Amino acid sequence: MTLRITLAALSLAVLGTTAATADSESSAACPAPGQRFKSPTSPAIFLVDPDNRARWIPNETVYFSLWETYDGIVILNDFSACFGSFTNLNGAHLVKSASSPQVFIWDSRYGAYRWIINEAVFNKYAFSWRKVRVQSATVSPVTTERWDF
């Protein structure tokens, strides 16, 4: 089941983030895949995924399973026209098998891992290489929906 909540309905406890504020020209534009963003009035942080969906990062545990710091979050005054709703990035983490160079991200929307197709895409999202969990077993389950943009 996919959790869908309107952006206006979201209310969270303050995470104490530090982030760069977008200038007035860029704040009018919609964020692109790979960008993390938040509003100046809410602590909620979002990521735009390869499917151009806003993905809410539900807590610090998930956030710090993907990134080292809050650096790179853009503050946007109004992104409601870009994304009327969003899905949750529950349980997201990075993993790879010790026997393969492929890195995957857990995507709760699919209930499976998505292959991050290359280093350029991994870096576009500013994921931390230190956050990749290496396991001895094969990564499973894996969806055919790749993390590819």
Rank of each mutant, 00 (worst) to 15 (best):
Y125L: 00
A112P: 09
A120M: 04
T21A: 10
R109Y: 14
L76W: 00
W67Y: 15
K38L: 12
F46Y: 15
N118S: 02
A98S: 15
K38Q: 14
T41C: 04
V14I: 07
W129Q: 13
N123E: 11
S11G: 06
S136R: 13
S85N: 08
L10S: 05
W115C: 02
L76C: 08
R146Q: 14
G84M: 07
W67T: 08
N77V: 09
T18Y: 11
L12R: 11
T17K: 06
A98P: 05
T69Q: 08
Q135E: 15
L15C: 07
Y110T: 05
M1A: 14
C30P: 03
V142I: 15
K38N: 05
A120L: 03
V62T: 15
T61Y: 11
L76S: 11
A126S: 13
A54T: 02
L94N: 00
W147I: 02
H93A: 07
L76I: 13
G16L: 09
S85A: 10
N123M: 00
K124M: 06
W106V: 05
N90E: 14
S11P: 02
V62P: 02
V74K: 12
A8G: 14
S140T: 15
A28S: 12
V142A: 03
T17P: 08
T69M: 08
S26G: 01
N90K: 08
T2Y: 07
I73F: 03
T21I: 08
L7F: 10
K38A: 12
P58C: 09
A9M: 07
T17Y: 07
C82Y: 04
T21L: 08
G16T: 06
A120H: 03
Y110V: 07
Y63N: 10
T138V: 05
F86L: 11
S39A: 13
T143Q: 03
N88A: 11
R53T: 10
K124A: 05
V132R: 01
Q35F: 06
W106S: 09
E145W: 06
F149W: 10
D78A: 14
W106R: 02
A92S: 14
L12S: 11
P101K: 01
S99Y: 04
Q102C: 02
W67S: 06
S24P: 12
L3A: 09
F64A: 04
D49N: 15
R55T: 00
L66G: 02
D49H: 01
T144V: 09
K124W: 01
F149G: 12
